[in-house]
């Protein structure tokens, strides 16, 4: 397909604590990927406060992205936004910006599934075609692979997400979010100093896993103060990652696919990368990790998935552009895959 002139998609991401804008060409070249994170004073993400942050930074992030991409907004062919899953107030803020922009520029709107976008950006950036994808972040933990028109879920958490589990423990251990060093990274640093493996629950249930019991046990031991914090961080990571690795290996053995893709915010963790690399080797699969810039929530992945959707005939009329807080990945048709 030859485009008469260069075509662009602008994508807006606002499912949780990041407000991001990305611009992609229809060929998948990322021209801009700007984001601004809401960092709470203490505790986790407060949805209302995060949404307020997004509304405040939206115009700044938008204009930065357009400047970076060095394009005239009038040349945008389509506007995409993360329609779900995520936090309601945050999603609505991004959707409002997207609707306004699309109607102002008089271009189509495309609602994109955030989880599918994490997988698609990983595939684009690592030249992967048909992987078993492990998507791990603060809000999601799932193993998916393409099968008959959709990404099917071959394993997932029965309760909390992996990133959530690590973040809550990190906060309990007194670690603080600093600019440039997320909580998970701080925990990872401490864990490298751990030496003793403390016994913690290991809960794999069939193809799924459960992390809430592990978190409770780790926090209880932390509060008792009998173990070194480093040892607990180390043990928590080893247990949690081994569980995730086991269900990923199951999916790889079951589907017999020859590529393994690690994507999402927790993909940045080196120890997790090492474990999954070992599994991929065991099953003669090529192992790929999404590049750091595209690991956490970002606008570029929404823009690129917007391109894939739009060029395969998917558009979202404004009256159907309501946000979907719990939009599962296996409910999304992906016509660009065969």
């Amino acid at each position: 397909m030859k485009e008469p002139e260069e075509a662009y998609c602008l994508g807006i991401e606002s499912t949780a604590d990041d407000f991001g804008v990305g611009i992609s060409t229809f060929q998948g070249e990322i021209l801009a990927n700007i984001s601004d994170a809401y960092i709470p004073e203490e505790g986790g993400i407060h949805p209302r406060e995060a949404a307020r942050h997004h509304a405040e930074v939206a115009d700044k992030v938008l204009s930065e992205a357009l400047t970076k991409a060095n394009i005239n907004p009038k040349t945008l062919r389509v506007i995409s936004f993360a329609q779900g899953p995520g936090l309601g107030p945050c999603l609505r803020t991004g959707a409002t910006v997207a609707r306004a922009l699309a109607s102002y520029l008089d271009v189509p709107l495309v609602g994109v599934n955030h989880s599918v976008a994490h997988i698609e950006i990983g595939k684009l950036k690592t030249c992967t075609r048909d992987p078993v994808a492990l998507y791990v972040s603060g809000g999601n933990t799932l193993v998916a692979a393409f099968e008959c028109g959709r990404y099917r879920i071959f394993g997932e958490t029965l309760d909390i997400a992996l990133g959530n589990c690590l973040d809550v423990f990190a906060r309990e251990a007194g670690l603080r979010h600093r600019q440039g060093l997320p909580l998970g990274a701080a925990l990872e640093q401490l864990a490298t100093k751990g030496e003793k493996l403390v016994s913690l629950p290991y809960t794999v249930k069939g193809m799924d896993l459960s992390l809430s019991g592990l978190l409770t046990a780790a926090v209880t031991l932390l509060q008792k103060g009998k173990h070194k914090v480093e040892d607990l961080c180390y043990s928590l990571q080893e247990n949690a990652f081994s569980m995730v690795a086991e269900v990923t290996e199951r999916a790889l053995a079951h589907t017999e696919k020859k590529e393994l893709l690690l994507t999402g915010g927790v993909a940045a963790n080196k120890r997790l990368q090492t474990m999954l690399k070992s599994i991929a080797e065991e099953h003669n699969a090529r192992f790929n990790v999404v590049p750091h810039e595209f690991a956490t929530d970002n606008g570029a992945m929404i823009a690129w998935t917007g391109v894939l959707s739009y060029t395969h005939g998917l558009v979202t009329p404004v009256e159907e552009s309501f946000v979907k807080l719990r939009w599962r990945v296996d409910k999304v048709d992906v016509p660009w895959l065969k």
Binding site: P85, G139, N140, T141, E156, T157, L158, D159, A161, K324, L325, R326, W327, R328, K331
Partner: peptide, 13 residues
Amino acid sequence: EIEKRGRYITKRQ
């Protein structure tokens, strides 16, 4: 009930 504990089940919404 177990399904509703999952992160993204539309029924809960």
